[in-house]
């Protein structure tokens, strides 16, 4: 495992920790899109179908369990915790995420490397992950006061996939059997590009020492 991949995974982990910290300590999920969180839970379920059958490394298995467990605990907090769920801003979270699921499923059935159940589900998870942040980005744009933890959460999440792209370049250059990943690369590039606008305003607000606010 190269440093880009590891740093990417750590950023991903950090984003989840930041979000859970906000929810658990502040007992608030204000500004967080439940729809994006539902999409991530679905992404992890479909991608980690092999969690108990295909062993890669202890690191991989543990990380998969951590991502699945954290995704479901976030969902539980936002939907069922008696204090946290009242801070969820349902009216601002209006993205039609079922259309994303449908579109990604159709695309996965049409464009994949291999037509097997596991491979199509894996491909679906790659497509869905690329666009899962959209409800959250829309919600951020509507939120007047984005708190630091929410801003950092999205920033770490974007950095994670950016680092994965460096990892793919590195692996492409250093590994012999690493040439049929174009599907992941295109999706990963789109996923990272979606954050470009957010990154711009995040860095700008950080440099000017101002509160983060996205233009409507």
């Amino acid at each position: 495992m190269n440093i880009f991949r590891f740093a990417g995974d750590m950023m991903h982990l950090l984003s989840v920790v930041v979000l859970l910290l906000k929810i658990h300590k502040m007992k608030s999920c204000a500004g967080i899109s439940l729809k994006t969180q539902e999409l991530y839970a679905l992404v992890f379920i479909c991608r980690y179908l092999d969690i108990f059958t295909g062993f890669i490394s202890l690191y991989n298995t543990i990380m998969k369990i951590v991502f699945l467990a954290s995704a479901f605990s976030i969902l539980w907090y936002m939907r069922s915790h008696k204090v946290v769920r009242q801070t969820y801003d349902k009216d601002q979270d209006t993205f039609r995420h079922y259309f994303l699921i449908l579109a990604c499923m159709v695309l996965a059935l049409l464009v994949h490397h291999k037509f097997t159940f596991r491979e199509v589900m894996w491909t679906f998870s790659i497509y869905l992950e690329a666009v899962a942040i959209l409800p959250q980005l829309v919600m951020l744009q509507r939120t007047r006061n984005i708190d630091n933890l929410t801003g950092n959460y999205v920033f770490f999440l974007g950095t994670y996939r950016g680092l994965y792209m460096l990892n793919w370049v590195y692996r492409y250059l250093t590994e012999v059997h690493y040439h049929h990943r174009w599907l992941t690369w295109i999706s990963g590039f789109i996923q990272t590009a979606l954050y470009a606008d957010f990154f711009y305003y995040y860095v700008k607000s950080w440099r000017n020492n101002e509160k983060l606010q996205l233009p409507a």
Partner: peptide
């Protein structure tokens, strides 16, 4: 299987 075994990333 080369493709399925290649899913070694998270």
């Amino acid at each position: 299987d080369e493709i399925e075994d290649s899913h070694d990333e998270l």
